[in-house]
Design a protein around this nucleic acid. Sequence first.
DNA 1: TTAATATATATTGTATAAAATATCCTAGTC
DNA 2: GACTAGGATATTTTATACAATATATATTAA
Lengths: 225, 225
Amino acid sequence: MSSTLKHRTISSAIAEQLRDAVLGGAYASGMQLRQDALASSFGVSRIPVREALLQLEAEGLVQIFPHKGAVVTGLSQAEVDDVFELRGMLEVRLLRRSVPRLTDDDYGEIDIVQHAFADAIRRLDTGRWGALNAELHMALYKRADLPRSVTLVANLLTASERYTRIQLATKAAWQRAQAEHAELIGLCRKGQTEQACVFLASHISTVHADLTAMFAQRFAATPGV
Amino acid sequence: MSSTLKHRTISSAIAEQLRDAVLGGAYASGMQLRQDALASSFGVSRIPVREALLQLEAEGLVQIFPHKGAVVTGLSQAEVDDVFELRGMLEVRLLRRSVPRLTDDDYGEIDIVQHAFADAIRRLDTGRWGALNAELHMALYKRADLPRSVTLVANLLTASERYTRIQLATKAAWQRAQAEHAELIGLCRKGQTEQACVFLASHISTVHADLTAMFAQRFAATPGV
DNA sequence: TTAATATATATTGTATAAAATATCCTAGTC
DNA sequence: GACTAGGATATTTTATACAATATATATTAA
């Protein structure tokens, strides 16, 4: 339980573990999550489990039906399209506002995340790819100074991970993502904000397209998920 | 307790009452909301109050600090700008997708809300203006078929109400909004989607500008809120 | 007098238990 | 034979009780 220490409450620790499980595909979409079972499996009471589920519902990972329980949200091409279109609009807006204000220290932090990301790819530490990718994107938006938009984008990145982790699990795809990140960061460093925005938009579109290709392929085999 | 019957759980009923209170300005920004006090004032235990607060946090109305409690989110011009820019982007996108699919029945519902809105303005039923305005906007996006975006926009409309209810409480401003709604709906009915989108963008900008003017005026008197 | 530390109090967080609600199965009726 | 009503069961929701944490106050030593 080393991860528990990172959290100030049991609820948030459970939320993180549940989130990881859902993102990692441990539960099938549509599967019902019973509070009692989760509580005993985590060794806690049902209260923190309930609060964790409420958190996940706000993130769009589960849906709660009163008096019936929580079920894992379904995956769909429509949602992929929605999420990635939103990301394109919102992330570009954040980048445009943030880049002119990024400091050398900020770029230092960005580099650290970038290297951690590269490391994770090298090590095939697939479970961390999504989180590090999100961390890197968020680091670029650090100076956007739009808390609400930043929160929204953070949620969208989490939602993306739900798909990328299942369907974009090839090293090659992530290596390309990493190369694109490097170019993106380079443009930002040079102060070429508009070029960076254009590049970011295409980066997001690329991942979206990859995902769409995989999605079609995957659900040709297992329709109706 | 007639409103309680509308809800399937006490938590959601408390959430609605708390939301109304925050939107109506019953609590000052930054004010701490103590679970115990709220629970006894509502005549329930702290559990549903806690869950309601979690819901409001997801909506951005309060902020919860572990082991310290929940405080009402502060108001700021920066957040107004953020919220209304987001609304402009996201609502236009929803409208563009929804209009071509709106049915006659949908327009019937829209008309009903529109008339309720007009009535509320006539009666000076200020408490309902925001909710009916939100309902009308959402009715127009009914066929967008983008659940995640729709949820986001619903939250943004709620956030807007936080400001409009306090600072845009004049009948004239809302009458203009109503007139603009009428024109907007007219464009949609005629199938002039692009014109409707442009008009919607300007409608949102108009409210934003009104709010900004009021905001400057208001916080010249009471800075630092 | 000031700083640091211990202690008391208030508030939140969690566990346990009771209440409410929905679902499923059975029996009875049309 | 299909359909409704009633009750049993499983699950969620809420209340109560307890534990943990943070803040403020008082006390002591420098």
